[in-house]
Design a protein around this nucleic acid. Structure first.
Lengths: 425, 425
DNA sequence: ACAGTTTCCCGTAAATGC
DNA sequence: TGCATTTACGGGAAACTG
């Protein structure tokens, strides 16, 4: 009769972190005959759970009883919202923990129960309901693992409260799973995953079987086992990319400028016939939460060459937004002047047409100082260790490049003169 | 009879943050006749303080009673150490807060009391002592203000417990204060302040009077009033520099490479006659927690010109250590190739002799990728808006500069070939 | 010794109080 | 309303604990 809404974590419902406030709401779906007293609802954590079923026990630290009220903005049904609830672990329980540590903490499922009791015409009626299974974590570092559990559960069962689910978790078909993975991106950023991106993910997870969309993926392969040769699981890797997008790449991702999930073979095949300076953006497969660009160039002998920059991770993106990295990236070859090798976003969009609106120009013009900015560079030797010639074979920086940089540093012509001024107090 | 040790905050004793654990120790300085029961000590916060004396009231959340024990490593006297003590504010006290908000929270002084009681031969003896005045804060953002109070109190009074001290705080002579300020640096970093640095600080605080070392500084001028034209007080400014040193400049500071506190006039006078490319390091006076370098150059017409870079603050220093900024800093003038204008640390130490040991070279050589690094640059126009000439008047990058950069990127010659490799899976 | 897990707490942001 | 102060909690690191 009651439909409990779930405790909410920003973006990640059904995960509760100890010591952090959460909110939950219960609604009474049937109209009750008028009762002359207030209907109290009590919330209990892991009510009636046989001890030993879970290895950790928690309790609600704060007030867990509240009176139902007519819901605003609705057809007048009764509801109650619990706010500022907080979970704490019970310590020193008699006897050791149950569950024998077979499951990790993020696989251990819990639930919130709601109870109310009222009397009509001598008849005592008990109402009770409970939430979908919950994961309890103690640190945000456990959030990815917790979210994997919530996804897997809700993808693969309709049971409202199978807390033993991860004792023997079912497999998912690739077609089910790929849809959920795409949702992770679209709910984060508006932009989901296209067929090509999903197929790369499928191959990564399943090898060549991915072509068969009802091939099955085990829970372990999805989020517990490490990817062969890597120190992280498939989901940990994918989640690190979701975090990277959320914090540093949202606008670029939403414009679909990040191909992201491309195998290196595919990458080469795509870039091979493109004009030199064509580049694409791809997530690192070797490191968590990294993005790199790969561009194609043609050597004097006509040979095609591919280059990928060391992936940028959150620490560098904190210092410099990704669009600015693309704008300012320079390669210094053998002491020759810096040049930005990135010209066209694959397939053939001039770089500034794509990223122009996303550039963050305008360094602070603090009066007596010369503005400064960070730019990303690579130094590349062409193999000859001998010092470079002293006369540059090409102009040090084209007028166009110079003007672009100047625009970054001062927004209008008047202020150019400011840059000229030496320090004069 | 008892000598209480103070609750300790890392580096900042006598400041307690609510909700954060602190430690305190009490020692019994007299030998007691043997007592056959254990001597219990009780700790109380703001014991016997007349309500209204302080505007906020706190209590010790955790166990506040402990038994004294023979102290290790000592002449066998009794002592007890309270650990994991934690303070919490009493809310909803009857009647409004006392003190009428004359004082800020960091000026409000509190104290910890320790009590013990024992009986010898029918004689009951009460022992009681208390700590030096304490400042209670609720957020680390209040730490600088709290530390200013602790310094001022302990500099200017020997009273053990004058909680009304900041009702009418005495002035400090500049000679007293300057010594304490120097201690802040030496206790942080080993290296204190020299005469020149102190004299600049004195002038900043007092104007020309600083020459007279017994000129007096008021509490307000030291830490409450803003510096004229600036949105922060003298102490807030100085403390922001202490934090900057602690987190980002420790080795450079300890080598005395940071002149730091120099007036702009003095700076010019020092650099004026030095060879071009001579630079010095100075803290920003206009912004909190910033460091800049100023270098001298000589124009074609012989005119001397001074340049200061926009100050680096913690956010940029997080991305790039300061020594590396000095190593890699480049100025692009009118599209001409980047050049590092920093040659000699004042007075005449070749840059790499001074900073060589402090450079953090070695970007990660992740195999298939081209290493990348961030470098700080400034773009400067010489006033002519016309595009730069296409032939560079000087070599794009000297062999020496190129070799330096190469060394940053690969530590041994063998690995140079790695840099050459294109991406080949 | 070690890995999984929790605790600790700074530092930023948001909320609250005055 | 604005400023002073507190609360909230993500995130990195240390501490814990079998």
């Amino acid at each position: 009769e009651k439909q409990p809404c779930m405790p909410t974590h920003p973006q990640k419902p059904l995960i509760i972190k100890t010591g952090v406030q959460f909110t939950t709401k219960v609604r009474l779906l049937v109209k009750l005959p008028e009762v002359d007293y207030q209907l109290k609802v009590k919330t209990t954590f892991d009510k009636d759970l046989p001890p030993g079923r879970v290895s950790r026990q928690f309790f609600i630290l704060t007030n867990n009883t509240k009176v139902m009220d007519i819901e605003d903005y609705s057809n007048g049904c009764l509801s109650v919202e619990f706010r500022h609830l907080q979970l704490k672990e019970k310590k020193y329980i008699n006897g050791t923990k149950g569950n024998e540590g077979l499951l990790s903490v993020t696989e251990e499922l819990h639930s919130l129960s709601f109870e109310a009791c009222f009397t009509v015409q001598g008849l005592t009626i008990d109402l009770e309901t409970c939430s979908l299974p919950l994961v309890v974590i103690s640190n945000v570092s456990q959030l990815p693992g917790g979210w994997a559990s919530v996804m897997w559960y809700n993808l693969l069962t309709d049971e409202p409260r199978n807390l033993a689910f991860f004792g023997n978790p079912p497999r998912a078909t690739w077609s089910q799973l790929s849809e959920v993975l795409s949702w992770q991106f679209s709910s984060l950023a508006g932009q989901g995953l296209n067929k090509e991106q999903l197929s790369m993910l499928g191959e990564k997870l399943l090898g060549q079987h991915a072509s068969c969309s009802d091939f099955q993926v085990s829970w372990s392969k999805f989020s517990k086992e490490n990817i062969p040769g890597k120190p992280f699981s498939f989901w940990m890797w994918l989640d690190s990319i979701l975090e990277l997008i959320k914090k540093h790449l949202l606008p670029v991702w939403n414009e679909s400028y990040i191909m992201g999930f491309v195998s290196k073979e595919m990458e080469r095949a795509l870039l091979k016939d493109r004009q030199p300076g064509t580049f694409l953006l791809r997530f690192s497969e070797s490191h968590l939460g990294g993005i790199t660009f790969t561009w194609v160039e043609r050597k004097d002998n006509g040979e095609v060459k591919f280059n990928s920059v060391e992936p940028y991770t959150k620490s560098r993106l904190n210092a410099l937004p990704f669009a600015d990295i693309i704008r300012d990236y320079k390669v210094i070859s053998d002491g020759v002047v810096p040049e930005n090798p990135l010209k066209f976003l694959f397939p053939d969009i001039p770089k500034d047409d794509a990223f122009g609106r996303l550039y963050n120009s305008a360094p602070n013009k603090v009066q007596p100082y010369i503005p400064s900015m960070l730019i990303p560079i690579s130094v590349r030797s062409n193999g000859s260790i001998s010092p470079p010639t002293c006369q540059s074979p090409e102009p040090p920086m084209t007028p166009g490049e110079f003007n672009m940089l100047s625009q970054d540093l001062c927004l209008d012509l008047d202020s150019v003169s400011v840059l000229t001024a030496s320090y004069e107090p």
